[in-house]
């Protein structure tokens, strides 16, 4: 046996268990799901029919109501809105709070409190959201009433189609900001002080230092936060399931919950697999983007 063969042999010993586990628990189910999405219940190949069925159904995209009328607008649009609203806000809040709480007395305690949202199981988070926005026991409607607001925002947000999705997105910001904050806070601690000292010598303002040093130096962390947040938003399920079950009238339905309903309510595993494949394609795009950025970072 040559040295090369021996090396390959020992490499195989280390790699094979992982490959076997991934093959059984990740690759096989993923391939089986992909195959299912191109079949009907009898196992006949139907091409893209399942995809057309899902994507043209008003549960997925409701062109009659979006954007002129109140939700439901369809799960795909709801997921899209979630990303458009939730991602920038959690990202900005994370960066701003991480900077504000950096090296101040009590900062770690406040960060820990904000991080509680991440520690709470998301299914519990959903219940919390339901009560946060409840007309009789929720803090949000009470606060708005005390500020003189009237109308829907002072009622139970999760009960009305106009406000249910907003309640979920706002609640999810509360739950997820801890992640962005913690990641950026750890990123801040890795920025060399010398950079700020040099900027001080050059007479740079606080804002200049923030935009010219802090933000660029945090970019790798921000990429990870963006990718992880996007993935979370795409596959969001538990808080919706616990808070509204996608309602009322489908006004807070999301793709993962739609997949669940197809699989375990309609018992239509082909349509469920189709939604799963669509979700996987979205996550793949995000994953590839992150990979590309990381490689770019390594190459720089």
């Amino acid at each position: 046996m040559t040295k090369r063969q021996a090396e390959l042999g020992s490499a195989a010993v280390f790699v094979l268990p992982a490959v076997a586990i991934m093959g059984v628990f990740i690759i096989y189910p993923a391939v089986a799901t992909l195959v299912l999405s191109f079949l009907d219940a009898d196992g006949t190949f139907v091409g893209l029919r399942n995809f057309i069925t899902v994507l043209t159904h008003e549960d997925t995209i409701n062109v009659d109501r979006f954007p002129g009328r109140s939700p439901p607008w369809g799960s795909l649009i709801h997921n899209g809105l979630w990303i458009i609203v939730h991602l920038p806000i959690t990202l900005l809040l994370g960066i701003i709070l991480a900077n504000l709480l950096h090296n101040i007395i009590g900062g770690p305690v406040i960060k820990a409190i904000i991080f509680i949202g991440m520690v709470v199981p998301m299914i519990v988070g959903g219940v919390i959201i339901r009560f946060l926005f409840d007309a009789s026991s929720g803090i949000v409607p009470h606060l708005l009433r005390s500020l003189g607001s009237e109308g829907l925002v002072t009622r139970t947000w999760t009960a009305y189609p106009q406000t249910s999705l907003a309640a979920l997105i706002l609640g999810s910001i509360l739950l997820w900001t801890g992640f962005s904050l913690t990641m950026h806070a750890s990123g801040l601690s890795t920025i060399p002080k010398e950079l700020y000292e040099a900027a001080d010598v050059d007479g740079a303002s606080v804002l200049t230092k923030f935009f010219r040093i802090t933000i660029p130096m945090l970019a790798p962390v921000t990429s990870v936060v963006v990718a992880m947040t996007l993935l979370w938003e795409i596959k969001i399920f538990d808080i919706v399931y616990a808070a509204t079950e996608g309602g009322p009238g489908g006004s807070s339905m999301v793709l993962s919950l739609q997949m669940y309903r197809y699989a375990f309510r309609r018992l239509d595993h082909n349509l469920a697999a189709t939604v799963a494949t669509i979700l996987s394609m979205f996550t793949l795009v995000v994953g590839l983007w992150l990979l590309k950025r990381q490689r770019k970072g390594e190459g720089a």
Binding site: Y160, E245, G246, R261, R265, R266
Partner: peptide, 17 residues
């Protein structure tokens, strides 16, 4: 089946609208 949660959900909508 899937009709049941649809029924629940649609009536929740009717109750407020």
């Amino acid at each position: 089946g899937d009709w049941q949660p649809t029924f629940w959900d649609q009536l929740k909508l009717l109750w407020v609208q």
